[in-house]
């Protein structure tokens, strides 16, 4: 009877270990313009367990540029990230992507289990106009980031900690133990003054 439960525990432990030493995850990236069907663009690799930024990267596919070049400038350029049961999408106006010189940024937002739940797709341009003087970068550049929830700010409350050498709370003192240094001088003064005789009546 015990064998199956040991086996289950072992499997669970193995799964947990596998999760803790998780390999980088690869997701496919596709893109589209306007209402056109998405076409493959490349793949995105991220490592939820790695703190290194270099662990996240975009690898372009073979037929990446076609859909973008043939598009209408007013349309939305949409990026899809798919894989592991997740499909995320985000878009920018095509003209802004062009104006940025294809300098793009993809940010995967990960939940507490490291599963992506939202995609941000932004470019480095602020408008569709390409300044005449500005030289656009020649090679497209894709940055990939991962974001998880930050630990929110909390009040730094100072907890009162009573410490004694033996770790026990100090014993409660009696009234006299606490205030003897007030009481004694008062009593001394009272005793010293009480001996004086009443002046004789004239």
């Amino acid at each position: 009877m015990q064998l199956p439960s040991i086996l289950i525990s072992a499997v669970l432990l193995a799964c947990g270990f596998a999760a803790s030493v998780a390999e980088p995850i690869e997701l496919s990236v596709s893109h589209s313009l306007g209402s056109a069907k998405p076409t493959p663009r490349g793949s995105l690799i991220y490592d939820p367990a790695s703190p290194k930024r270099s662990a996240n990267k975009y690898i372009p596919g073979a037929a990446a540029a076609g859909a973008v070049d043939s598009g209408d400038d007013d349309g939305l350029y949409r990026v899809y990230v798919e894989g592991n049961g997740v499909r995320l999408t985000a878009a920018v106006p095509l003209c802004m992507l062009t104006a940025s010189g294809y300098q793009e940024q993809m940010t995967l937002h990960l939940d507490s289990k490291g599963v992506p739940w939202h995609l941000d797709y932004l470019v480095s341009a602020t408008s569709c106009d390409i300044p005449k003087k500005k030289q656009l970068p020649r090679t497209p550049k894709t940055q990939v980031f991962t974001e998880t929830a930050l630990a929110g700010a909390r009040p730094k409350l100072e907890q009162i900690v009573v410490t004694t050498p033996d770790g026990k709370p100090p014993a409660e003192q009696t009234f006299l133990q606490k205030y003897w240094f007030y009481i004694i001088p008062v009593m001394v003064m009272f005793l010293m003054n009480s001996g004086a005789e009443e002046p004789a009546k004239k």
Partner: peptide, 14 residues
Amino acid sequence: VTGTVHYRSEHNGG
């Protein structure tokens, strides 16, 4: 406009 998540923080126990 874009749906970009600029900031997300967790206040656990809240």
